[in-house]
Nucleic acid binder design. Structure first.
Lengths: 231, 231
DNA sequence: ATGTTTCCTTAATGGCTCTAAGCAAACTTA
DNA sequence: TAAGTTTGCTTAGAGCCATTAAGGAAACAT
C-alpha cells in the first residue's frame, strides 16, 4: 500500500524536521531557515518547498512535533502509576513536563516564543497537537473528579463562569464549570512558572528552580484534594 | 552646554526609537528592522549605524524604553496613594502593570519574547531598566516589611535559601531571606499570569483575564498581610 | 513505449544585516 | 578667517534570507 515513493517522501519529511530541530538546538531559533535546513541536507533551498509551503509551515510542523513528544513523555510518566492513583499520576505528569522542558529548553521555549502568528489557527497540526497536550492533564483531572470530587468554591465570578462555560462544553468532559476553574488555576500557576523559567525571567534571583517547582506542586495538590509526595 | 549638534543627535535617536516602536505596534516584531526604520525616516539603511551599533542594540534600546515607560506608569499609580498605605499602593502598582501590559500588548510581549540573547548582559540599558522596574515592587514590599512585617514560613528549603541569599544581598534592602521568598512567590504568580496572557497561552479558555487577575491579587494580598480591595 | 507525476535543479527578485569608501556640512582651533 | 577634524550621511557591495519561475531528469502508470 505505502509505495516506495511515499516511503521515501516520509523519510525526507522526517529528516527535514530532524535537521530543523538540530539547528534550533545548536544555533538557536534564528538558525532554523529553509535555506539552512536544505544546505544541511545537501539540497538546494527551493527543493524544500515540495515538502512545506513555506517557512511558517515548517516551523508549525516542528512545533507540533515538540508538542507530540512532550505529550508522549508525560503520558508515559503518568502510566507508570496505576489508573486509580490520580494523585501520583498527576504529580508524575507535572514532573515529566518540567523535566522535558528543562532538558529541552530550546524546544520548549520555541513553543510559546515561536515567531508564529498564523500557524496557531484552528486545524493546523500545531493547534491539534496543542489540544492533545492539554488533554493529558484535563483527562486525568476529569477521572479524578469522577472518582473523588475535589472541593470547589460555591460561587464563581460571573464573567469567569460565562467564559468557562464555552470552554467546558467544548472540552466535552463531565466536569462542572467550578471544577474546570480550579483546574485552570492550578494549570496557570504550574505552566506560568515553567514559562518564566524557560524564558529566563527568573534568572535574576534563581539559578535552579526545581525546589520552587516542587513548592508549587505542594501548594497545588491540596486544591485538587490530593496529597503531595516528594519525588 | 548641550550644543546644537548634540540636541539634533538626541532628537534623531528619539525618532529612531519612536519609529521602531510604531513599526512593532503596526506590523509586529519582524517588521522592526534597521532598513525599515531608516526608510520610514527617509534615510538610507547604513545611516542608522551612526546611532546604534547594530540591530541587537536598537532592539535593546527600545526594550529599555518600554521598561522605563512601564516603570513610570507603575510609580505614578503607586504615588496616587499615601506612603503609609502599602496595601493600596501595591494593588495600584499591580493593576497599573496589567493595564499597561494589555493596552501595550506588542510592547509587553516584546519584552520577554524579544529575539535577544546578548542584550540581557549586565550593564546593558535593557538590564538596568529591568532592575528599576523590579525595584518598584521590591522597594514597596521592603517598606511594608519595615512598618508591618508579614508572616513568613519558619523554615526554607535549603537550596532556595542558598540561592536567595545572593539575591537578597545584591538587592541591598533590609529584607530577610524568608520575606524575599514570600515576595518572589507572589511575583511569580502575578508576572507569570501576565506573561501567559500576553503570549496568548490562555486563549483556549479565556478571552478576558481581568477577573482572573483580580482573583490572583485576592489570593496574593493575604500572603503579604494585606487586605484585598476591589478596584 | 508513452505520458504524467514527482523531485530536484538553477536563475532571479527583493528583502535583510553589516562593512567600506567617500562626500559635504558643521564644528574646532589656530 | 582659514585649516583641520569630526559628524552625518550617501552609495556600493558581500552574503544571508524567502519565495517564485522555468526546466530537466527520473520514477511511475498505462
Amino acid at each position: 500500500m505505502a509505495g516506495r515513493r511515499e516511503r521515501v517522501r516520509q523519510a525526507t519529511l522526517a529528516e527535514i524536521r530532524a535537521v530543523a530541530r538540530r539547528l534550533l538546538i545548536e544555533q538557536g531559533p534564528a538558525a532554523v531557515t529553509i535555506n539552512a535546513v536544505a544546505r544541511e541536507m545537501g539540497m538546494s533551498g527551493p527543493a524544500l518547498y515540495h515538502y512545506f509551503a513555506g517557512h511558517e509551515e515548517l516551523v508549525g510542523a516542528v512545533t507540533a512535533d515538540f508538542f507530540r513528544e512532550l505529550t508522549e513523555v508525560m503520558e508515559a510518566a503518568r502510566e507508570a502509576h496505576p489508573p486509580g492513583e490520580h494523585g501520583r499520576r498527576l504529580l508524575a505528569t507535572c514532573r515529566a513536563m518540567r523535566k522535558w522542558a528543562i532538558t529541552h529548553r530550546a524546544e520548549f521555549g520555541w513553543v510559546f516564543a515561536s515567531p508564529l502568528t498564523g500557524e496557531r489557527r484552528p486545524g493546523s497540526p500545531r493547534e491539534l497537537a496543542g489540544r492533545d497536550f492539554e488533554a493529558v492533564f484535563l483527562e486525568e483531572v476529569a477521572a479524578l473528579w469522577e472518582s473523588r470530587p475535589f472541593p470547589v468554591p460555591a460561587e464563581l465570578e460571573p464573567s469567569i463562569r460565562k467564559q468557562l462555560r464555552a470552554y467546558t462544553a467544548s472540552a466535552g468532559l463531565g466536569l462542572p464549570v467550578e471544577a474546570v476553574h480550579v483546574f485552570l488555576s492550578c494549570w496557570i500557576r504550574l505552566y506560568g512558572l515553567l514559562c518564566m523559567e524557560v524564558l529566563n525571567q527568573l534568572d535574576f534571583a534563581y539559578s535552579d528552580l526545581e525546589p520552587v517547582f516542587e513548592e508549587c506542586l505542594r501548594e497545588i495538590a491540596p486544591k485538587l484534594g490530593l496529597d503531595y509526595e516528594s519525588p
